[in-house]
Computed example of a mutant assay.
Amino acid sequence: MEDYLATKAKLLGKIEGPLSYAVINLDQPEFRQFFGDFNSSYISYSLDNTTADIYCTKYEFSADKTIFDLVTPMGVRTVIFSLPGKFNLINALAAVGGGFASGVDLDNIVKGLEESKPVPGRFNSINQGQPFAVIVDYAHTPDAITRLCEATKDIAEGRLLLLFGCGGDRDKGKRPLMGQVATTMADFAVVTSDNPRNEDSSDIIKDIEPGLFEDRFEIIENRKEAIKTIINMAQPGDVVLLSGKGTENYQEIKGERFPFDDTKEAIEVLNELGYKGLSEGN
Rank of each mutant, 00 (worst) to 15 (best):
M1R: 14
D3Y: 14
A6T: 15
T7Y: 13
T7P: 01
L12I: 10
L12S: 06
G13S: 11
G13Y: 03
K14C: 12
S20M: 10
S20V: 00
A22I: 01
N25A: 07
L26F: 10
D27P: 06
D27H: 10
E30Y: 10
F34A: 12
G36H: 14
D37W: 12
D37M: 14
F38E: 06
Y42N: 12
D48N: 08
N49A: 13
N49R: 14
T51M: 13
T51W: 07
A52R: 00
A52H: 01
D53M: 10
I54Y: 04
Y59A: 09
D64H: 09
D64G: 13
D64M: 04
K65H: 15
I67A: 13
L70Q: 04
V71P: 06
P73D: 12
M74F: 15
F81Q: 03
L83Q: 01
F87A: 05
I90H: 00
A92S: 12
A95S: 15
V96T: 09
G97I: 00
G103H: 05
V104P: 03
D105P: 11
I109E: 09
E114V: 09
E114N: 12
S116K: 05
S116R: 03
P118K: 02
P120A: 11
G121V: 04
I126R: 04
Q128F: 04
Q128A: 14
Q130Y: 02
Q130L: 02
P131T: 00
A133T: 03
V134N: 00
I135D: 00
A144C: 01
I145M: 13
T146R: 15
L148S: 02
T152R: 08
K153H: 11
G158P: 00
R159P: 00
L161F: 04
L161S: 03
F164K: 04
C166T: 07
G167D: 01
D169L: 10
D171H: 08
T183G: 02
T183Y: 02
T184A: 11
D187F: 01
F188W: 06
T192G: 06
S193H: 10
D194W: 01
S201E: 03
D203K: 14
I205A: 06
K206W: 05
D207Q: 15
E209L: 15
R216Y: 11
E218D: 11
I220E: 10
N222E: 15
R223L: 13
R223S: 12
E225Q: 15
K228W: 03
I231F: 06
I231V: 13
M233S: 06
A234S: 06
V240T: 02
G244T: 08
Q251S: 14
E252N: 14
F258A: 09
P259K: 08
T263W: 03
E268W: 08
V269D: 03
N271I: 02
